[in-house]
Amino acid sequence: MSLRLRRLALSVLMSLALPGLSGGAAPARAAELVVGVRADARPFSFRASAPVFADPAAGGPLRAAGYDGYMVRVCDGVLAEMRRSQGFEVVPRLVDAASRFELLRAGEIDILCDPATITRARLDEHLASGPIYLSGITFASRPSVPRNPCRTLVGFVASTTAEAEGLGAVLRAGEWPAFRDILIHFANNDEAWRSAEPACPQQEGRAQPLRAFPTHDALAEAFCNDEVIYYVGDIEIVTAVLGAQPDCRWRDALDTYTDDRYAIFLRGRDVAPEKAALLLEFLGTLSRRTLLRPSLLDEAFAGTFPGYRPSRKLSLFFWSLRGRE
């Protein structure tokens, strides 16, 4: 048990055992959990075009509010189960990739239900569940890659692992041999990247080879409009986001270059006692619902990817969590 978890558990115990000591002014309003969800990170956390369930009791509070995806389904399963035994409000709040951890740190949201990869920096700042999904960085290419493009080569969403580690992993694997030098020069702030193309019109110049986008939808639109040649991101997101674009063709997005474990991140600092109790309850329920059979992970996978089966790596990952199916 980490130091932070122990501190949280202590504060929860104190709040349960010594209600009188917690300040005296106990809030009258019902407890609420603010859950961060994404609009663009399909198929893990996104806003569905129509409400998923008319009846909130059938699914969970997030899907009833119109959100869907693998991470949303896992969160929903846990929240729905918790609400069977205690009353609290679930407030979905839209976040984007750049702001999500800032909001979590500031206490604007309590739980982050989006495809967030476990990294050292994130674990240092926040609480996290155990890993609940295994993905990996891939890239999609335009149907035809010109020999001497003058436009942006690689697009990614800012503040994701695609930016931090994905590009390096793809280059280390030996992909994009023709553009390798340009990208490495550019990444090293070496002006030599400008000279790599012999025939870019001088007046227009060459576009910067790397470009960060705020959301997957913005990146997908630029990619489908031929403004970006490679789209780097987690494999399920890249294929799902591009698949949702009308008349967009792409290729590749078949191999992965990293192993990214997703977790649900929770607020870990300055948590009021009653909320801390809810968060602890959330983690406990999550463990019970995912590590035992039938597992919420299988349910969420089948619901998110109907007709698909997990890859060999993902099967082993699930097996290591919940045992033989």
Partner: peptide, 13 residues
């Protein structure tokens, strides 16, 4: 390998 209806990362274990 590219045509299977599979989700998740690829590569050696």
């Amino acid at each position: 390998a590219g045509e299977g209806r599979v989700k998740g990362p690829t590569g050696d274990i």
